Simulated scan of single mutants.
Amino acid sequence: MKVLPALLLSFFSLAAFADTPMPPPELQTTCSASKVICAVSDPATNATVVSSRVPTPRSWTIPGWHRWVFPSDDGVSVVVAYGGMNLVPRNVELTEPVLFFYNEQQLVRTVRLGDLYRRKGKLQRTVSHYAWVSTITINPSNQLVIERVDGAKIAFSLPSGDKEPLRPDGATRHRN
């Protein structure tokens, strides 16, 4: 009988922890899976410098400090995700930008919450926010794959930011 209150307390502690304030901005480095491309986001300069070693060393700058950055092994693509990471405020609108696709310095596409969900009711309610995504990964097919909180997976082409069918990991795109 004492187990149930302990389990409930643990559950509510985890939920409260998930909604704790974000830590203050700090210098952050994120690299692609093979370390071909790295992004260094610096709050002091309010800029993110992306460096690539393939095919030749080069770097470019994305404006702003970013907490959630996904560099690709293609050497040119970087995705910046929502600053609150997987949580959006309760008063969020479906017009809220949540993903920003860059090719070198060029912003090529912005994905809004409404591009992923038809209504806010599909978002998962937390103690003080809504969760909009469970995971974000880059697969070997060079797709950004998001898993929504309802388990649905959506794939995006990294170079263009366009939605596309999810390819099995490692599959290549065939062009006719």
Results as ranks from 00 to 15, higher is better:
S59P: 05
K120F: 11
F17T: 04
K120T: 10
S41C: 02
L99F: 14
L27G: 03
A152N: 13
S32C: 08
C38S: 10
A16D: 13
R175S: 07
S51K: 05
S32R: 14
S52T: 13
E104C: 06
A44R: 14
Q106L: 13
V79N: 02
D115S: 15
S157V: 14
T135G: 00
A47I: 01
L87R: 09
R125T: 15
P89S: 03
V36A: 03
P63K: 04
S134M: 11
L99Y: 02
C31T: 12
A18G: 13
R53C: 03
E93V: 02
F12C: 15
F101Y: 10
T61C: 09
G121K: 12
L99N: 07
N142R: 09
N46W: 08
L116E: 11
A16T: 14
W68P: 00
R118P: 13
D162E: 15
A15K: 11
H174K: 08
S34K: 12
V133D: 09
R90M: 12
V40M: 05
F100P: 00
P57Y: 14
G83V: 04
K163Q: 15
V3C: 15
K122V: 12
S32K: 15
H129W: 12
K2G: 15
N91C: 12
V79I: 11
S160R: 12
Q106T: 14
I136P: 07
M22G: 00
G84E: 03
T126M: 03
G151M: 09
Y82Q: 07
V108G: 08
P97F: 00
T30E: 12
W132R: 10
V69C: 05
